[in-house]
């Protein structure tokens, strides 16, 4: 039960910490989930999307 105790003492004991950690966790999950799905998508569709072609057609990149 040490994990449960640590979890309780670190996060759940104080409501301010609990709510903050839920919000931060939701934010972190949202960003990482988005990044994960995007990287899968880009990998699956490698060479087909505009961002893969764009470099060929951009004239001045300065």
């Amino acid at each position: 039960m040490s994990f449960a105790n640590t979890f309780y003492n670190a996060l759940v004991k104080r409501n301010s910490v609990y709510v903050t950690s839920i919000f931060a966790g939701a934010f972190a999950f949202g960003v990482s989930f988005d990044l994960g799905v995007s990287s899968f998508w880009d990998n699956w569709n490698k060479g087909k999307q505009w961002k893969d072609l764009r470099a060929k057609y951009v004239q001045d990149e300065e």
């Binding site: 998508w41 699956w44 569709n45 087909k48 999307q49 505009w50 893969d52 072609l53």
Partner: peptide, 13 residues
């Protein structure tokens, strides 16, 4: 078609 699959984007070229 190159965009047939569930995960397939259009072929922009």
């Amino acid at each position: 078609w190159s965009h047939n699959g569930l995960f397939d984007s259009f072929d922009h070229a």
